[in-house]
Design a protein around this nucleic acid. Structure first.
Lengths: 237, 237
DNA sequence: CATATTTGTTAGTCTCATCTAACTTATTAT
DNA sequence: ATAATAAGTTAGATGAGACTAACAAATATG
């Protein structure tokens, strides 16, 4: 973009924004960051799948991001974020999760509604906007799905929850987070009246299909498939 | 973008978003809409200036927008929005002004801070996001600068304020809106403790330079240049 | 080990939004 | 009325982000 001041001098904005990630690059960065955090090796193919683009597209993008100093890549080896890339990625996730929290706590959206909106809001560049959300929310450390919100330096609180699937019969646990926050899972949990903080007592584990019979605080008994149990992160109480 | 489902079927998203305005087109649409509302003839050159782009760029954009059915254009004649373009433009302004209101009333930003953030937020496509803002704000009709917020159909409340510059000596008026909401003007008004609703009594108009000597409710007397007076929209009380 | 499969790369194309240089067509001023 | 100025257009280029088709290289499998 070109700007002209009152004396006719011309300025090119592209110089100023040269090193800022575009919306597309922010999305790639976020994807790589999140996959790395899950200890998944990020290959070109993996990234293509995650981003729903062709392999040449992500290949090309990875090269550009390497030039920017955000990551290191060698053929057939996993993509590794540099500290700069790591921090940038964390700050995008921070914007995303702060937004989700704001949408949930301040604007009254359900935990199944917040992701899609946050996906758009996270690309807003204004820093004061997110700092204000943070302040209004009282500097939260977890988002509505129990995932940690990176701090302003991109540092992430280490949480150590267990998958419900690894809990033994008879134990009592509290839901603390989700391994995957798909809308389908969230709607299913809504229907079962399970939310973060809900206490679950494991009554019985069916050896045939590994399904869990769980007692809720309101004395309702529900059956959860093993798949669902692997998506629920809990803490013993 | 390409999506593949679990059976390997491929879907192309481009078909779905074909007719949605890109962020750039939304900005052109908004600029044309706002200039038209101020009864300014929008020429290719005018639009280039407003958008800080070259003439071929806006020329090219106008042709594309005409193809989309958002406007009508003939060489050397002013650009005219179609009803479709008018509505789209109004809805972008609606998002912008609702956001400004939300930033001001809910998030506590000053009226001089809201514009730049809203400039980014207005491009978010989620409808429920803006509807929720609207609801939380109690369906406001005016933004923090006194400009009307178009309704969901793109209809705008007709307001009929006067420029302070056209008011006679001795009259008492209330500030209702601003002709231009530049940050400089807003900061200047902050310094003078003038905000929407402030009552101003015109003590004296200096014939030499048309400056206004104005008495505020707290009995402070301030002098406003004619230029500033032309930017203040008032109502007699 | 040889072949099949997966992974990654090259080359070339496309659209969008931008630019400059050079040109044409109106409008304005002398 | 003509020259100067302003407005608009054409042509060609660029960079970002996407694609396909075809090929190369590494890994896995029989």
């Amino acid at each position: 973009m070109r700007l002209t001041n009152m004396f006719g001098n011309i300025y090119y904005i592209c110089v100023l924004i040269y090193n800022m990630p575009t919306q597309a690059k922010e999305n790639y960065l976020k994807a790589i960051y999140l996959l790395s955090r899950e200890s998944i090796d990020v290959s070109i193919t993996e990234l293509s799948k995650k981003m729903n683009v062709s392999k040449p597209t992500s290949n090309n993008m990875v090269k550009k991001m390497e030039e920017r100093g955000w990551l290191l890549y060698e053929k057939y080896k996993p993509i590794k974020l540099t500290s700069k890339g790591e921090k940038l990625g964390a700050l995008i996730v921070r914007k995303h999760r702060l937004t989700e929290m704001f949408l949930s706590k301040v604007m009254g959206f359900g935990w199944e509604e917040v992701h899609d909106i946050a996906e758009e809001v996270e690309h807003i560049s204004s820093i004061i906007f997110f700092d204000r959300m943070d302040k209004i929310l009282g500097f939260p450390t977890l988002d509505p799905h129990g995932s940690p919100i990176p701090d302003r330096e991109g540092e992430v609180l280490k949480v150590n929850y267990l998958k419900l699937g690894s809990i033994k019969e008879g134990q009592k646990v509290k839901l603390r987070g989700l391994e995957n926050s798909s809308k389908d899972l969230l709607l299913y949990l809504n229907k079962k009246r399970i939310k973060l903080g809900t206490v679950l007592l494991i009554r019985h584990i069916e050896t045939f299909d590994n399904s869990f019979e769980v007692l809720l605080e309101d004395n309702a008994t529900i059956v959860l498939t093993f798949d669902v149990c692997q998506s629920l992160l809990v803490e013993e109480v």
